[in-house]
Computed example of a mutant assay.
Amino acid sequence: MSDLSSRFSTLDPQVMGALRMPDQRVGPVRSLVVRLIIAVSALAATTLIVYFGRDGYLDNNGAGPISLLDALYYSTVSLSTTGYGDIVPVSPVARGINILVVTPLRVLFLIVLVGTTVELLTERSRQSFRIQRWRSRVREHTVVVGYGTKGRAAVETMLGDGVDPEKIVVVDTDRTRLDVASGLGLVTVSGNATRSQVLRIAGVHQAVSLVVALDRDDTAVLVTLTAREISDTVSIVAAVREAENVHLLRQSGASSVIVSDETAGRLLGVATRSPAVVEVVEDLLTPDAGFAISQRPVETQEVGGSPRHLPDIVLGVVRGGELHRVDAAAVDALERGDQLLYVRKATPPDDD
C-alpha cells in the first residue's frame, strides 16, 4: 500500500488532463443558501465573542461600554477587513481572542464572499485529490471504450444490473459524450484508447473487464491488442460490424466478440415472421423491465441436482469457464463452483 501511495503522490500532468472524476452537482439555490448560512454564522459567532469579551475592547469615540450593536458593528468591519479603528481590542485576552478566533473567522468569511473565485482556483487541487484517492482504491472495475450508441447501452445495462457507477470508466475522444457519462456519475478519460498510456490511466491493468464499443473494426482490433498487452487477465468484450473481422478480434486477445450488424440483421429477419420473438429478446436484454438474463453461482442445496428441475428458468451452466446448454449431459448434475445462466424478473429503477 505504501508503494501504491508513493506512485500516485504526484500525478502526471497527462493524467490530470485526461482523467476526470464525476461532478458532484449542487443546485445554485442550495449552494447560495449554504454559503449565506456560513457567512451569517461566522458573523454571529464573532459578534458574540466580542460582546462577551467587551471589557477588553475600547470605543475610541468615547460612547461608553461596548453594546451588542457595537459588537455587531465591529464584527462587520473586522470580518470585511475594513477596520475603521474606532473600536479596538486593548486587553491581552481580547487581542489573543482576535488572533486565535476572530482571524480564522475573518478568513472563513472572506472565502465565502469570494467563494466562486476560490472554487475556480482550488478546482485543480480538488480534482487531483479525488483522482489520487480513486486510483488508489479502484479495483476490478469495467472500462468502456467508446460511448456511442453501443457504449451507452452497455453502461445502461450494467447500471441496471446494480453495478456501482464508480466501478465504470468511460474512454472516448468526444468531450460531449464524456460530459454525458460524467453526468451519470461515471469516471471518464479523454483520449485515444489505442494508446497504452490512455488505457493505463483508465486502469485497464487493474480492471476485471474491458468493453470495446467502437464504430470502426480496425480501431477495435488495435484497442484490443493494446489492452491485451497491458493485462493478461482482463476480460475483453468487443463489438464488430462485420463477421469477417471476428477472428481478428479473437487473435488480438478478445474474450468475447459480438457482431453488431449481423445480430441486428438476424433480428430484423426474425421480425418479418415472428415479431413477438424480437420483443421477448429485447425484453431479456433490458435489465430494468420485464425479465432479464442473469448469472449466479450454484447454491449449496442445488449441488447434485439437475438444472432443469430448479425453480428458475435455467438457460445454461458455466463450468470451468466453458458454457454448456441446460440439456447437456455434462451438466446434468450440478457441481460446486458452477454458474447458472437463468431468467430473472427485472428490477425497475428507483424513481428518485
Rank of each mutant, 00 (worst) to 15 (best):
G185I: 10
E242F: 10
L184G: 06
Q206E: 14
V143K: 01
T173M: 14
V259C: 15
R195A: 14
G146T: 09
A193T: 03
L225W: 01
V246R: 10
G185M: 10
D261G: 11
R241I: 06
V240P: 04
T176S: 13
T224Y: 01
L268V: 09
M158G: 05
G253F: 08
T157E: 04
A254D: 06
T149A: 10
G183P: 08
S209L: 05
S231K: 01
M158Q: 11
R216P: 00
S274C: 03
A264H: 04
P275D: 05
D215C: 01
K167S: 15
S255E: 11
T224E: 03
A153H: 05
T263R: 06
L199G: 00
K150P: 02
G148T: 08
K150S: 13
T188G: 08
R273V: 13
A227H: 00
R195Y: 14
H141S: 08
Q251W: 07
E244N: 10
A276W: 10
A271M: 09
R250I: 10
E156W: 02
T263K: 04
A202V: 01
V240S: 08
G203Q: 00
S256L: 13
S274E: 10
S190R: 14
L248A: 09
V171D: 04
D215S: 13
D161S: 12
L210W: 00
A238K: 05
V144T: 01
D215W: 02
S235A: 13
L210I: 05
T149E: 11
D232S: 13
V180R: 11
V223Y: 02
E229K: 14
A154C: 07
S231V: 03
L159D: 07
A271G: 09
N192A: 11
A243Q: 13
V221L: 09
V155I: 13
